[in-house]
Amino acid sequence: MTRVAVVGGGQLARMMAPAATAMGVTLRVLVESPEASAALAAHETVVGLPSDADAVRRLLAEPRPDVVTWEHEHIPDAVFELATQMGVPARPGRDALLFARDKIAMRGRLGELGLPMPAWRPVETEDDVEAFLAVHGGVGVLKTSRGGYDGKGVRMVRHPADADDWLAAAADGGPPLLIEQLVPYARELAIQVARRPSGEVRAWPLVESMQRDGVCSEVIAPAPRLTPAEQAEAESIGRTIAEALDVTGVLAVEMFEVDGRLVINELAMRPHNSGHWSIEGSVTSQFEQHLRAVLDWPLGDTAAIAPVTVMANVLGGSREVLESAWPEVTDPGAKVHLYGKGVRPGRKVGHVTVMGAHLDDVRKRAARVAATVRDGEQS
């Protein structure tokens, strides 16, 4: 039986399980606890952390997985070494994953490829920050090179002193820092592509995402007012990155639209929040496609099923409300996904997908159902 091992016990691994079941694939997941989101859905679980060599050995032990993949980028090098020792292909590989977990490495490599990015530079001192601000309008976006997500590890700076505590932390052994130009973007977009080891690449429609306090709150697929030229440009960027960085699996490229052109913001080499719409809204979901890709199976059709699909995240709420919200969801076309996670303010604990023909109607329905699931009442 085909078996895929996954490192990481969150909702991304959890949402691989239905696709794996349909494909006849056994999903074995390394989870941090028996109550982790993915532990409630996976076929086989191993409890432990990626830093625990014994747990990783059990994840990769007989019956040996055909491949090991990841639901996040923060994978210790020792995991790749163990996979090599135990004869399990690791996809995406360590060399590719570096560019998703280290923003300085990512910016440097994409610059070598001539791809569009904000102006940027590594910074180690106040003088570095001051020099960048002087050239780029007196404001910049300071980032930690590793470990940031959902708005964490990102800070606006207008004066070198704004960076003092982060510079001190970096000098004391924390992740190095970089500063980027604050670009005047009109909207945030994302393209997802999937690539298999034999080279086949497929892309989904370009989507638009909206943020709330640094966390994605809504995704519209395809992006409104999308032209064939914009889709082709986004696909070209995604394909170039996937091929040049030797990415296997799903790659998400987050971008800004600036004066009608695309500028790359971030990379993720795994299923991504901007692609959750594809579970119901595409012929092949990002989760099925990721499994196909890492197994080097033929990739599926990525066409959108409906004219408009909207995914609305459920952010925060209360566990009691989430567990009892279903009877109050009266929209028969809404698809609700709950992640089985502990609740805290602003945390992604589920999402809602609605499809239809008219953007305004679909957005309102998705927002209304997400509010019902979060708050327990119709809004």
Rank of each mutant, 00 (worst) to 15 (best):
M156P: 00
M156C: 14
M156F: 15
M156W: 03
M156T: 15
V157R: 13
V157L: 11
R158G: 15
R158P: 07
P160F: 04
P160R: 06
P160L: 10
A161C: 04
A161S: 15
D162L: 09
A163C: 13
D164W: 01
D164Q: 07
D164P: 01
D164F: 00
D165G: 00
D165W: 00
W166R: 07
W166V: 00
L167D: 01
A168G: 10
A168L: 14
A169M: 07
A169Y: 01
A169N: 02
A170R: 05
A170P: 05
A171I: 02
A171Y: 00
D172Y: 00
D172C: 04
D172Q: 10
D172W: 01
G173C: 12
G173D: 05
G174D: 02
G174L: 09
G174V: 03
P175C: 03
P176C: 02
P176V: 12
L177N: 04
L178W: 10
L178K: 10
I179C: 13
E180Q: 06
E180M: 13
E180F: 12
Q181I: 04
Q181R: 13
V183L: 15
V183C: 08
V183A: 12
V183H: 01
V183S: 02
P184H: 05
Y185H: 12
Y185L: 12
Y185Q: 08
A186L: 14
A186R: 14
R187L: 06
R187G: 00
R187A: 06
R187M: 07
E188Q: 05
E188R: 08
E188H: 01
L189P: 02
L189C: 11
L189G: 06
L189Q: 04
A190N: 13
A190G: 10
A190D: 11
I191M: 15
I191F: 14
I191T: 08
I191S: 02
I191W: 14
Q192Y: 08
Q192H: 09
V193T: 15
A194P: 08
A194Q: 10
A194E: 03
A194C: 09
R195I: 01
R195K: 14
P197I: 04
P197W: 01
P197G: 14
S198A: 15
S198N: 09
G199R: 08
G199M: 07
G199H: 11
V201F: 10
V201M: 09
V201E: 01
V201S: 04
V201T: 12
V201A: 05
R202W: 03
R202I: 14
R202F: 02
R202V: 15
W204P: 07
W204E: 06
W204Q: 12
P205A: 03
P205T: 12
V207N: 06
E208P: 10
E208S: 11
S209N: 15
S209D: 06
S209W: 02
S209V: 05
M210N: 05
M210G: 14
Q211M: 09
